[in-house]
Amino acid sequence: MTPSTQAKPQVYSHRPNEDEVMALEIKLLLQAIAFRYDYDFSHYAQASLTRRINNCLKKSQLNNIAEMIPKVLHQPEFFELFLKEMSVTVTEMFRDPKVFKELRNKVFTQLKTYSRINIWHAGCATGEEVYSLAIMLKEEGLLHRCQIYATDFNNQSLKVAEQGIYKAEKISEYTHNYQLAGGKASFADYYQAKHGYAKIHNDLKEHITFAHHNLIKDQCFAQMHLIICRNVLIYFDKTLQNNVLSLFNQSLLHRGYLLLGDKESLEFSKQKNNFDTIAKDQRIYQKISYE
């Protein structure tokens, strides 16, 4: 029997409803994953996390989220599937061309003064963005001085990134973006087309190291002149966003640059006062030096 306290119309009954049951299932699932694999998703933005867990459920043909728990505990291959679903790999070359143009005009011009340049590209997914960056650096005559660390927590994506082979059908869009981004040569100079695929030239790869790095738990590994992390923070809650931004702050040299995604900003973060804004709309920031 439900208690006889009079319920207001907008309040649901005391018995947990489907949504509340699902919230519990998700909590338990995330606990199981954190315990077994040391991947802690508890500070991911809930709405899209819930969506992707439900997508994973549909694909796995299980009846409910609770049934995923024994699967992740005892079948590492199932966890791989889960991870793939959690790590949204959507990306493209020269996404938001204006950003690359600004990077060229406002940041690369400054990086020129260094003899060796460290760049960390965090959340590189399947690599399209990091090759875009390498192309721009090459055109500015900087690539040979650069060490680019391209990291992600999804090993499958990193494998694709390392190969640098993409579907040819995307090339016309990328070519257009490349031009808008202020490309100085012909985009076709940077890949080899074969059987419906485009393979990125090896000389662009020489200065890129692809590596596994989990932004939730792994630390800084070098002092950077530039950190690029686009469309990764959108998946995190405020707490995790602040942690990751603080990690970036620690990893940057004085006057180092930070580039975020189009919809991400330092505006409401704890790091706001540690950075100058270089290009507001393009989300380019520079670490303030207190020297």
Binding site: D19, A47, S48, V88, V90, I234
Partner: peptide, 29 residues
């Protein structure tokens, strides 16, 4: 919150994605 994902129902942004999360939040309100 925003999410970069493939289109849903050929749409990006998708109305279903918004409505679904909105109703999980506001329920009968």
């Amino acid at each position: 919150s925003l999410s970069l994902e493939p289109p849903v129902n050929f749409a990006l942004p998708s109305i279903d994605v918004l409505f679904d999360s909105a109703s999980a939040c506001y329920k009968n309100q």
